[in-house]
Amino acid sequence: MILVIGGAGYIGSHLVRELVETEQVVILDNLSTGHEKLLIKDAIFVKGDLGDSKVLGDIFNTYPIKAVMHFAANSLVGESIKDPYKYYQNNVASALTFLHTMLKHDVKNVIFSSTAATYGIPNVDIIDEACSNQPINPYGRSKLMIEQILEDFSIAYGLNYIVLRYFNAAGAHISGEIGEDHIPETHLIPLILEHLLGLRDSISIFGSDYDSKDGTCIRDYVHVTDLARAHILALNALMRGKKKNTVYNLGSGKGYSVNEIIDLCESVSGLKATRIYADRRPGDPAKLVASYKKVKSELGWDPKFTLEEIIRSAWKWHRKNGGNK
């Protein structure tokens, strides 16, 4: 059985939907940012916190867990700056509790969801895993701390891990049944689609003087189901002893400006957006684009969804759910 911590969240729920095809799954989620409606009926659900050693102990004592997949982290950059305690408590201290508990029960395989925020503001156009890690906010630092802890635990306790650094997860399941539903919402594509549905008055563009063809910053988007497939490939490689104790970027290798994303959302929806230009946000890099050559070479992963398909899947979900707002 596989324990998925945070399996009621956006990315975790998409992973579980794919994983139950081949594995028995136990979900641990406190539903603080996840949603009960995203739970997959074929998985066992336990409501609880990853920092609760008793709940974790009960899971490991009850179910034959062979690996853990960790998705449970606070992930809002702005909030992490305003409330760093919350981020170090949940993302680091609670993660230490779950790592200690799994090792105590002789479970030594973990897939860890990390972030491109560990790179900070890189001075290269395309970011590979060899780029230096210089996070500029508590969120990125908290993720990098766990990456370093995993490395230390591997040396000291024989822990086996694979770290997956996401760039911009986007889109919804092709069925339209589950999708991106954050409260508050901070991600660009759902913000645009909520605006086009009439749930927001406009879409704000932070900065129009970046070094890009239209002056807006550039990001790399990858479909959430492609991310789920990457996790399963990583899990299989880890369990079979083919790969361990390594880091992979997950992105598309292509960058799109904010205005290009809005243009495509308009094209997919047939609606026109009201764009409001605002000042740059502190710490926003001009360009973040991933190299995924390593994960392609070692795990055989390629993103399958185009940017248009990403937006079409998200639009399908948002129209069906009215944004759930």
Score class of each variant (00 low, 15 high):
Gly158Lys: 06
Val92Asn: 07
Asp220Lys: 01
Lys104Trp: 03
Pro303Gln: 00
Lys242Leu: 14
Gly270Glu: 11
Asp226Ser: 04
Lys272Gly: 07
Asp49Glu: 13
Thr274Cys: 11
Leu50Val: 09
Ala130Glu: 14
Phe45Lys: 07
Leu299Arg: 01
Ala290Ser: 12
Ser257Trp: 00
Thr246Met: 09
Val107Cys: 14
Gly255Glu: 07
Leu96Thr: 06
Lys86Asp: 11
Pro135His: 10
Thr246Pro: 04
Leu56Arg: 01
Asn249Lys: 02
Lys272Ile: 12
Lys293Glu: 15
Pro285Ser: 15
Leu144Ser: 04
Val68Glu: 02
Met239Val: 06
Val289Thr: 12
Asp128Ala: 05
Val222Ser: 01
Ala8Gln: 02
Ile155Asp: 12
Lys143His: 01
Ile111His: 09
Thr62Ala: 12
Gly48Ala: 14
Ser267Pro: 00
Ile178Phe: 01
Leu235Pro: 03
Leu164Met: 14
Ala170Leu: 10
Asp284Glu: 15
Thr225Lys: 00
Glu260His: 05
Trp317Pro: 00
Ala95Arg: 00
Leu150Ser: 09
Leu103Pro: 12
Ser53His: 12
Ala273Thr: 09
Asn168Arg: 12
Gly283Val: 13
Gly120Leu: 04
Phe167Asp: 02
Tyr210Val: 08
Leu159Cys: 14
Lys86Gln: 08
Gly179Gln: 01
Met102Phe: 06
Lys244Thr: 15
Asp220Glu: 07
Ser154Tyr: 08
Asn91His: 01
Val124Arg: 09
Asn245Tyr: 11
Ile262Gln: 05
Ala172Gln: 01
Leu197Cys: 08
Lys294Pro: 02
His318Ile: 07
Ile261Ala: 08
Tyr166Lys: 07
Glu194Thr: 06
Gly158Thr: 08
Ala228Trp: 00
Glu151Gln: 14
Met102Thr: 05
Leu233Ser: 11
Val77Thr: 09
Gly300Cys: 09
Met239Gln: 12
Gly7Asp: 02
Glu180Ile: 04
Thr33Ser: 13
Leu233Ala: 12
Val77His: 05
Pro285Leu: 15
Leu103Gly: 09
Lys104Ile: 03
Lys86Thr: 14
Tyr210Cys: 11
Ser114Arg: 02
Ala72Phe: 01
Thr115Met: 02
Lys272Asn: 15
Gly179Val: 04
Tyr210Ile: 12
Ala169Phe: 02
Lys320Gly: 15
Phe112Asp: 02
Lys66Ile: 14
Ser297Tyr: 08
Trp301Leu: 07
Ala169Trp: 02
Glu147Lys: 09
Asn160Glu: 13
Ile205Gly: 07
Leu271Cys: 12
Gly253Trp: 01
Tyr88Arg: 05
Gly7Trp: 01
Ser212Asn: 10
Glu298Val: 04
Thr118Gln: 06
Glu21Gln: 12
Ala117Pro: 00
Ile276Ser: 14
Lys254Asn: 13
His318Val: 04
Glu23Asn: 13
Leu233Pro: 01
Ala117Trp: 00
Leu227Val: 13
Gly300His: 10
His187Asp: 10
Gly179Leu: 02
Leu197Ser: 13
Leu103Gln: 09
Val16Glu: 00
Gly140Ser: 10
Asp29Gly: 11
Tyr63Glu: 07
Arg229Cys: 01
Ile65Phe: 04
Ser154Ile: 11
Gly176Met: 06
Asn137Leu: 11
Tyr88Cys: 08
Ala278Leu: 15
